[in-house]
């Protein structure tokens, strides 16, 4: 029982970064831009947030700085793929390299320095530690509570508003959207920047809210899992909530088992989220229904193409 409560209490903190990043990626891909750079953008967000807080700033300032750093690199990515029509797969990988490279170089002096992170609800509210529900709530923070709401808001915006309709049209059929007056480049650029913002937030959350420290390789392929989550969620931010919870739960299992001193092969256990991702991707492909992939994902659109 104690194990269960402890596990439930930390699931949201493992779910949140995956959810934030995948919601951002979903919007980018719905607009037609394949975005593989999440791993690099998250690393950048995590490191920038950490060194901002280590420099004596408020955790919220840190989070803002982390998000801003990721937005900056996604501006570069956006210019490369939207304006300069670079190959989206390769440009995404370049963003990962740049993100990991910058964090490894700039972040080196700050590695392993702990700091006071984002307060938990338990620090802010008087909750009864004897009550299991109280314990679970006490372990949460503002962002982990806001993330699912944000995801649902993104779903509503995407599916129910005219602006969302225009963004989806850009990713489904840019020629049709263009004729309808959608500025494809502006839409895609905005979507890419939003993805950067969300990946930056996700990364900042890892360092400022979860670990209170910066270490290299902190993101540990969570960016790639977020990329896979986009496919699992069939490009729907609402489904991403469920998917992120699934992976968050698996991810949170290992530290809990370690904490209660269970004798498990730790490194093999840590494979669980990756194996689970592949397995669920496999199951999704068996379902046979439409994948939901935007029809023009990754395609270069040129108005003047003559056919």
């Amino acid at each position: 029982m104690d194990f269960l409560i402890g596990w439930l209490a930390i699931i949201p903190s493992y779910t949140t970064p995956l959810l934030l990043a995948s919601v951002g990626l979903i919007l980018s891909e719905r607009a037609g831009v394949l975005n593989l750079g999440a791993e690099g953008m998250m690393a950048l967000g995590a490191m920038t947030a950490a060194i901002t807080v280590l420099a004596g700033h408020d955790p919220w300032m840190g989070i803002a700085a982390g998000a801003a750093a990721a937005v900056a690199v996604s501006l570069l990515f956006g210019l490369a793929v939207v304006v300069f029509r670079a190959d989206q797969t390769l440009a995404g990988l370049a963003v990962v390299a740049i993100g990991l490279g910058v964090t490894g170089t700039v972040g080196r002096p700050y590695v392993q320095q702990t700091f006071g992170g984002l307060p938990k609800l338990g620090d802010l509210l008087a909750l009864d530690p004897a009550n299991p529900l109280g314990r679970i709530i006490a372990a949460q923070d503002v962002i982990s509570l806001a993330a699912p709401i944000l995801a649902l808001a993104a779903w509503w915006w995407l599916m129910k508003t005219q602006a969302g309709l225009r963004l989806r049209a850009a990713g489904e059929n840019p020629a049709a959207a263009d004729v309808a007056g959608v500025d494809i480049q502006l839409t895609q650029l905005a979507a890419v920047l939003f993805a950067g913002l969300m990946c930056g937030l996700a990364g900042a959350y890892l360092s400022v809210a979860t670990s209170h420290v910066w270490v290299e390789n902190m993101v540990a392929a969570r960016g790639w899992i977020a990329v896979a989550l986009v496919i699992l969620a069939k490009w729907s931010p609402a489904r991403a909530v469920i998917g992120a919870m699934l992976f968050g739960s698996a991810d949170a299992l290992v530290p809990r088992l370690q904490a209660i001193g269970a004798d498990v092969p730790v490194y093999l256990m840590m494979m669980l989220p990756y194996a689970l991702t592949l397995f669920v991707l496999f199951l999704t492909s068996l379902s046979g229904r439409g994948s939901g992939e935007p029809a023009s994902l990754g395609a270069v659109y040129l108005r003047q193409d003559k056919h």
């Binding site: 490369a80 300069f84 440009a91 370049a94 390299a97």
Partner: peptide, 29 residues
């Protein structure tokens, strides 16, 4: 200097060539 700088250099070179290719693949009219 961290060896990560090598990864950074690779990312930078890749990105800059990807962008430069634009000028051979497309023409502005």
């Amino acid at each position: 200097v961290s060896e990560a700088v090598i990864v950074l250099a690779q990312g930078t070179v890749l990105m800059s060539i990807l962008i430069a290719q634009f000028f051979s693949h497309y023409s502005i009219h």
